[in-house]
């Protein structure tokens, strides 16, 4: 159920990348893609919690997003991909809340420049596509591996 919600979100992100961003080339679209990605990972976290509950690994679930990610890191500490995805989720959340500026809007190299405590992150069309692929592969990984166990 949660996996299908994640897939729906990722489909929306797909449309935003390959249609909206392709034709508008604006940072606002990059920002909405990041929001979609965060929601998709949120759904994946719920799927992981459901799985952990079935395995009787956890009885109470956190409600705050950051604590959810930290809890999943603890629950699946032996799975590097899950731990990495949680760190990625936390940095996406930081990016979405960070102050940002725009570079080369309406051009092929449109870039969102987010200022984080850790430093500056530049998100171009190529970077956002990389993020998108990463999440898509992670969904496959969960669907065909972890959640089937």
């Amino acid at each position: 159920m949660n996996i299908s919600k994640a897939l729906e979100e990722i489909k929306r992100a797909d449309h935003l990348i390959f249609v909206s961003l392709k034709y508008t080339r604006t940072v606002d679209v990059i920002k909405s893609i990041i929001e979609r990605m965060i929601t998709a990972i949120d759904c994946l976290m719920d799927a992981l919690f459901e799985h952990a509950q079935k395995k009787k690994k956890i009885k109470v679930l956190p409600t705050a997003p950051v604590v959810k990610a930290e809890t999943i890191k603890k629950l699946y500490s032996d799975d590097v991909r899950i731990v990495e995805m949680m760190d990625f989720y936390l940095s996406l959340r930081k990016i979405s809340k960070a102050h940002f500026t725009k570079r080369e809007e309406y051009r092929r190299h449109v870039t969102m420049i987010a200022t984080l405590e850790e430093g500056i992150i530049e998100i171009s069309i190529d970077v956002i596509k990389e993020y998108f692929e990463k999440i898509k592969q992670f969904i496959e990984y969960l669907n065909e591996g972890v959640l089937k166990k």
Partner: peptide, 13 residues
């Protein structure tokens, strides 16, 4: 607000 957990019964703790 970050340390609110939900039990299977729906109870928030």
């Amino acid at each position: 607000t970050e340390i609110v957990y939900r039990h299977g019964s729906g109870l928030k703790i």
